[in-house]
């Protein structure tokens, strides 16, 4: 297989909030078809980096290219075409509270203005079915739903356009273990069917271990490492030790049957 194409390219990115430096000179490439997980301590700027990839925030220096287009210089039509090729799952779901479940998922499809209503209906019901939401919930409003359901519907909305690139911000936070596992399986099968590229921020070790192709670690405002899970676990870095060597980390890694960092109590 030839070298996969780069979907997201970040070069020389720096971020400052006032006098606080969040990112310093970060270079990162996300290749087509891979699942890249961003990890890092609280306040290390994971979500900020994700928002910069989405063009929601602009870095103080450096460029962010998505599908080969520099987000800061893209034309309106260029941005529009990028935005129909990616999907984002926000941490809190960010469902439109004034729209029903059905209309939330239908919104990106209707915005295309190229699908008739029957097709939209079938697609929405299919997406809802895929994320395990029964048809009887389709007419409900977001405020009537549980947190887990909001998350699944937000995911259905994120994949409504069958995006090539999917951003997930803490996708399994707030889901019970069973649902988390179901979510992981869903992403795996979608990846196989749609050749999706996924950029994910997560704290959940089980999700990280079962989905990630590569792991990028943000610490001390730098990108400490970008490597496969096995290589990452073997790193001699204080953050890696704390993150993977705890009892939970060892359990998740053992369950996978891969490398386990030495030591730990």
């Amino acid at each position: 297989m030839s070298a996969p194409a780069a979907v997201v390219e970040i070069a020389g990115l720096s971020t400052r909030f006032g006098r606080q430096v969040v990112h310093r000179d970060i270079d990162l490439v996300v290749f087509q078809g891979e699942v890249l997980t961003l990890v890092g301590g609280s306040g290390s700027g994971k979500t900020t980096l994700l928002r910069q990839m989405l063009g929601l925030e602009r870095p103080a220096a450096g460029t962010v290219k998505v599908f080969g287009t520099d987000l800061a210089r893209a034309t309106a039509s260029g941005l529009e075409s990028i935005r129909s090729r990616w999907g984002m799952l926000f941490q809190g779901g960010a469902l439109f509270s004034a729209l029903s479940v059905f209309d939330n998922v239908a919104l990106p499809l209707r915005e295309l203005k190229r699908l008739d209503e029957g097709m939209v209906h079938d697609l929405v019901m299919l997406k809802l079915q895929m994320v395990g939401i029964e048809p009887k919930h389709a007419g409900k409003m977001p405020s009537e739903l549980s947190g887990g359901m909001v998350k699944r519907i937000a995911f259905a909305r994120a994949i409504a356009l069958d995006p090539e690139l999917l951003f997930l911000d803490e996708p399994t936070a707030g889901l019970d273990p069973d649902r988390s596992e179901g979510f992981v399986q869903m992403v795996i099968s979608l990846r196989a069917a749609l050749r999706m590229t996924v950029v994910m921020v997560t704290h959940d070790l089980d999700t990280l271990v079962s989905l990630s192709d590569r792991v990028a670690i943000l610490a001390h405002s730098r990108l400490v490492s970008v490597a496969t899970l096995d290589e990452t676990v073997a790193l001699d870095d204080p953050f890696v030790h704390d993150f993977f060597r705890g009892a939970r980390g060892r359990r998740a890694l053992l369950a996978r049957g891969g490398a386990v960092p030495p030591g730990g109590t």
């Binding site: 059905f102 007419g139 196989a192 069917a193």
Partner: peptide, 18 residues
């Protein structure tokens, strides 16, 4: 086989919205 799942999901999703 990888395309089969979507048709299974479609069959399951085919219920009228109340």
């Amino acid at each position: 086989p990888e395309h089969e799942t979507v048709f299974r999901h479609l069959a399951a999703s085919d219920q009228p919205v109340p």
